[in-house]
């Protein structure tokens, strides 16, 4: 496969996954805040700030009064903003365009439909009353895309590269969501008597990762800080967990680099190293220093991405 096209497919996977996480974050935070048990979690300003923080564009000035429709537009449909859902979908399609000859017609048409759906979405409606409709459709369409990938692509290198992009992005976004909700839990602390570890924000966090139901089944208890983090970071059976994403990345890098030889400079080696670091960790070790964990893992994911670029995408 051409190195340039491999790079594009990798990023196609990343952009599709990213758009989904942003859409879900908007949806869950907005709607769960409406009837949140404490005042601060219900506060519109609190929610809007959390959204901006998650997409990496935090409002630093505490005194600014955010305008809801503006924030929603900026994150959802603003073509001028590189982090908006629209921009992400647009980039995903551009990357798919350049690799059109390699991916299935079915997958391409689904991406194309997805793009036209987002691009033609009525911005006024979106800001006024269609946040739910829009975000649910975006997440559903990405689910369709994943289905098309699994069902219509040959499970070869092309598939492996797209899946690497998706899983690296998933791990990254889940960590960003954890970071954002962890911040929220800290900020919302004590405002209604509930402690940090039992914060309502953990429920929201799980919902953002579509993992609430699974988590309830697994622990059969109300989510706490520690059980939530354990589930979303370390549980390899949770499809959205960081651990699962790392396992997936490892599985797919082996398709690209089937070599069994010892090569400490390869991407496969680095992925294996990062994966094994978390495979046998206690959640308490992470909870002691969440910020440190977040920085560390984001840094590792960045290194993996860079190494892939050097090893496979160099053109």
């Amino acid at each position: 496969m051409l190195a340039r096209v491999a790079n594009n497919l990798f990023w196609m996977g990343r952009y599709i996954e990213r758009s989904e996480h942003i859409a879900r974050y908007l949806n869950v935070n907005y709607f769960s805040s409406l009837d949140a048990p404490n005042q601060l979690s219900q506060s519109r300003q609190f929610v809007l700030r959390s959204m901006l923080f998650m997409v990496g564009n935090p409002e630093l000035d505490d005194n600014v009064e955010l305008e809801e429709s503006q924030v929603l537009y900026k994150i959802g449909l603003d073509a001028e903003n590189a982090f908006s859902i629209l921009s992400n979908v647009k980039y995903a399609r551009e990357n798919a365009n350049s690799a059109r000859d390699l991916i299935s017609t079915e997958l391409y048409e689904a991406i194309n439909k997805f793009y036209h759906y987002v691009n033609n979405y009525d911005a006024d409606m979106f800001m006024k009353n269609s946040l739910h409709d829009f975000t649910v459709n975006v997440t559903e369409m990405t689910a369709v895309l994943r289905g098309k990938m699994r069902g219509t692509l040959l499970h070869d290198e092309i598939y492996a590269i797209i899946m690497m992009g998706i899983n690296i992005e998933r791990a990254t976004q889940v960590i960003r969501i954890i970071n954002a909700k962890h911040q929220d839990a800290l900020n919302a602390q004590g405002s209604y008597g509930d402690k940090f570890s039992n914060s309502y924000e953990w429920t929201t966090l799980l919902k953002c990762a579509e993992s609430y139901d699974m988590m309830r089944r697994f622990y059969k208890k109300t989510p706490t800080s520690i059980s939530t983090l354990e589930f979303l970071i370390l549980n390899p059976n949770c499809p959205r967990s960081v651990m699962n994403s790392l396992n997936q990345v490892y599985k797919h890098i082996k398709v690209l680099d089937p070599s069994k030889k010892y090569n400490k400079d390869s991407t496969a080696f680095l992925v294996g190293r990062v994966r094994s670091e978390y495979e046998f960790k206690y959640i308490t070790e992470i909870e002691e220093d969440i910020q440190g964990f977040i920085e560390n893992i984001l840094n590792s994911l960045g290194l993996i991405s860079q190494k892939m670029e050097k090893e496979f995408f160099n053109y």
Partner: peptide, 29 residues
């Protein structure tokens, strides 16, 4: 892209190719 796909061959841009000793190569993974 249609022609490349239906012929089952690579679709390349100039930057994907290079020439070494008068032979042409494409840069793959």
């Amino acid at each position: 892209s249609y022609l490349a796909k239906t012929m089952g061959v690579e679709l390349v841009e100039g930057r994907d190719l290079f020439v070494e000793n008068d032979f042409v190569y494409m840069k793959t993974t």
